[in-house]
Design a protein around this nucleic acid. Structure first.
Lengths: 267, 267
DNA sequence: CTTGACCTTGACGCAGCGTCAACCCTCCAT
DNA sequence: ATGGAGGGTTGACGCTGCGTCAAGGTCAAG
């Protein structure tokens, strides 16, 4: 006859755990000796070891209960299921290891690969790190809000970058971010923007972006938040008759097609 | 600016988890918009994704806290430690899978291999399953109480089994267990026992077992518990002048060496 | 007879959220 | 303007699987 600590030690669990199993009726309360001590037989050892084997595998006690009290066939099926779950868990942990490695390497876990590639392209075009950080943060927000659209948006961005004027634009914007308050630079940027807009208007593509109102609003807002210069630039452009940012409209010269009119950037 | 559910969804956690992280100051409370809603920026996304990467790896939140607020070098070291722990956990789960397979196969996880081998040997000698179960249960109790002695005890048992009389003994005992209450059988067993004892006494080995008092007591007790016949047999042997069981003493014929005298089996 | 290592029950504590409850905000269609 | 859907807010209790006191009673040994 075993005492509780002999039982627990041999089965490799704590005394506290054994008492817990009694309380939830997972292990039957054994007879007591004359001083009130619990006195265990070999059946208790066998059952407790089975319990431990299952809990070690991460099986919750309620499920252990059902399993141990089930018919042999159900038991075997249940164990088979658990084994499958264990295999899945192992795979999960291995994936977790890979993510950890990326985390330690300082990689951008917050962004999809397409965005990372796009930022790398900007970097190769000579865009400054300061501006890249702003871009990155903006893309994080966009990806978080409209994750399924992100690849479409990025694809459009890549296409824009084919234009040499667009490339010039980015290097100037990057410069503007680094030399804050340089009004002349903003004007230069505005000039390029206008050229691009006019060309788009002539091609009949002005306001032709594929995005819905929500995304347009978002992109504008993110843009305005990320840099103080953005608001100044927008003001300059509006003086020249261009309104909006993600979705451009030409204001004073009449006879142009008009699109949605709620493009005013949200505070 | 993100709402809490946008943040949570994109980072792959629940809204409840995010609020929990705020409560324990793992993720800083962001500013609120005019209606009291939390409004998150990209830094929150980055931090939350880092949190999730670590918690997915099984790191407790308190440790995540320390890690994220540590210097880059400490962070990298910490992540490396976690990776080591992950590898260990994966190995543990693989070991668990192997034990589960044995459990499903109905193997005796409660007994060391040496005992299983010994029981197999008894089975090959023709011992009945009924008796084998009793033996097995007894060995479970013994192994649970004195796990480090079990291999020594088993080795001695194997040696005993070399004697043809001992083999005969086991088959008779097995028979006695199957035909309970057969007094003649018990007498026959007693005869063999006596022959073995006398031979041991002549070789000067009586009472020479290597066990301490506690184990002697245990083995006697287990023996008496496991079968009602045992007590009858002990009585017969005592009438013939033999006392004890695991450790034998010869009582009436004087001039024999005497060993410990506390061999009376405990109730 | 004391000491130390057991045993007993009972109760609270812990992580990491899940899950109400009860209420407020915003937007859209009616 | 109204009502309902689908967000958000705080607060509090629930869950698992025990760890960890607390406040004793018991047993074997010196």
């Amino acid at each position: 006859m075993l005492t509780i600590s002999q039982l627990a030690t041999y089965a490799g669990v704590t005394v506290r755990a054994v008492r817990h199993y009694h309380k939830i009726a997972l292990l039957p309360e054994p007879a007591r000796d004359r001083s009130g001590y619990r006195s265990y037989d070999s059946a208790a050892v066998v059952r407790l070891i089975r319990i431990r084997t299952l809990t070690d595998a991460g099986v919750p006690l309620a499920r252990v209960q059902k399993l141990l009290d089930a018919a042999p066939q159900e038991f075997e099926d249940g164990v088979h299921d658990i084994d499958k779950e264990l295999r899945a868990e192992i795979r999960r942990l291995e994936a977790s290891r890979r993510r950890l490695a990326r985390l330690a390497a300082g990689e951008q876990l917050a962004l999809p690969q397409s965005v990372i590639d796009y930022l790398d392209r900007l970097r190769r075009h000579g865009v400054s790190e300061r501006y890249l950080e702003m871009e990155r943060d903006a893309w994080i927000m966009i990806a978080a809000q409209v994750p399924d659209l992100i690849d479409t948006v990025i694809a459009a961005k890549h296409e824009q970058l084919e234009d040499p004027d667009a490339q010039k634009l980015y290097s100037l914007v990057s410069e503007a971010v680094d030399n804050q308050g340089d009004e002349a630079l903003l004007v230069e940027i505005a000039d390029i923007l206008e050229r691009l807009y006019i060309r788009a208007a002539e091609a009949g593509q002005l306001g032709d972006e594929p995005f819905d109102d929500q995304l347009v609003k978002l992109l504008d807002a993110v843009m305005l938040e990320s840099a103080p210069e953005a608001a100044r630039l927008l003001a300059i452009m509006e003086k020249r008759g261009w309104k909006g940012w993600t979705r451009i409209e030409q204001v004073p010269p009449p006879g142009q097609r008009q699109f949605g009119s709620r493009t005013a950037p949200a505070g």
